[in-house]
Design a binder for these strands. Structure first.
Lengths: 226, 226
DNA sequence: GGATCTATTTATAAATT
DNA sequence: TAATTTATAAATAGATC
């Protein structure tokens, strides 16, 4: 090398070490360039100095990533490739499933029926008739239950009201008010009902109801899918 | 270098190129080792020959992955992390969408109705009634169309048959067969019908038909989802 | 295809500016 | 601290085995 043979062992003098690092780094990069050009090779050279600084050389036609990937591939150390591929597959399958589901929904919504034959259409029709029956039953169940709850609430109100009336009567017996039955308190019942539209709703016949909000009724149910 | 200054440009002679590659590769690896020891540096050196073979040097205390990761960190070239994260997100969203779609299908199938309130149930019911009407209409359209096609086929058969009869009569006039009308050829009509069940099927009232295959009819329509 | 030899160029440690 | 010089070791192209 220079003035006298040098020993290949760690240079302890930090300034010297850094100077040597600079010079030799330039040297090795030059060698890498020459290898690239002369031998039509691809070289990825990464160097980390003892102070943590990173220097690099990469053949112009390539990238560190590309060469590193090929190295991993060759050495069988690549745990990424299969993982990535599996992810891609899963994604594809999910998308397909998604499209099938959407199609089924469209068909159950009366669209996209062109490719169904008579047999399938009849099956779909029968299934939907059965299903709408389930929904109807559930609807009645819900309305019956909430009706019961409401009746209980009404009953409670009635009792409270009567109890208050009784207390009032007892306290101010002097006035001799007539005893009022809650059932006859027409005005109060109307007010209660107006604040709770459902009270009327459940009293209507289902068939009549169906015609009330025909168009947008299902809007609140529909899912918004991105 | 050797006997006379050499020009740094691609060696076209393939044998020479490979020889030079071997020698210089040994040289650059030696330099990398020296840099590692002398300067306490970490070196990751990957070389791909023009024939695709990979050679490497890595400082004993390190790994290619470690140095490559630090390089990516430092250069902000880590395009993987965000890509991977985006993939995970997409996957998650697709799964959620999928579940929503499945739920909608279940609800349109009369299941999983517990969490719908009265309003939503009514909307669903109305929507399904409208949809089943679409399916029914489509069904009738299909059956009408195929019925027309069938009528045409029948007409053709009838004409051909009559034409054949006429030819037969004319050729063998001596036998004085009575002229047969196709309409009266009861046996032949029955045979034709037995070979083509659909002929009878489309003559049945839709309502009667619906009751024929009540249970598994929709099976052929259902999607099988993994 | 590689191993060795050799003439010459190249790299570079140390000195100098 | 960095660029330049210089003396010498190291690398290596081409030849030969």
């Amino acid at each position: 090398m220079g003035r006298g043979k040098i020993e290949i062992k760690k240079i302890e003098n930090i300034t010297n070490r850094q100077v040597t690092y600079s010079k030799r780094r330039a040297g090795i990069v030059k060698k890498a360039k020459e290898l690239t050009v002369l031998c039509d090779a691809e070289v990825s050279l990464l160097m980390v100095s003892s102070t943590g600084k990173i220097h690099e050389y990469i053949s112009p036609s390539s990238t560190h990533k590309n060469i590193y990937d090929r190295y991993q591939q060759a050495s069988g150390t690549n745990l990424w490739q299969p993982h990535y591929e599996r992810m891609q597959e899963t994604l594809q399958k999910l998308k397909e499933t998604n499209n099938k589901l959407r199609k089924e929904i469209r068909q159950r919504n009366g669209e996209d029926l062109d490719e169904l034959n008579f047999q399938q259409l009849r099956g779909l029709e029968q299934n939907m008739e059965k299903s709408v029956e389930c929904v109807r039953n559930r609807k009645f169940h819900v309305i019956t239950t909430s009706s019961d709850t409401l009746k209980k609430k009404m009953k409670n109100h009635e009792e409270t009201h009567n109890s208050l009336l009784r207390q009032f009567e007892e306290r101010d017996a002097d006035f001799r008010f007539p005893s009022l039955d809650f059932e006859g308190d027409y005005q109060s019942t109307i007010e209660f009902a107006n604040g709770n539209p459902q009270i009327f709703a459940f009293r209507l016949q289902p068939k009549l109801q169906s015609n009330l909000q025909d168009e947008e009724a299902y809007g609140s149910y529909g899912l918004s899918l991105a």
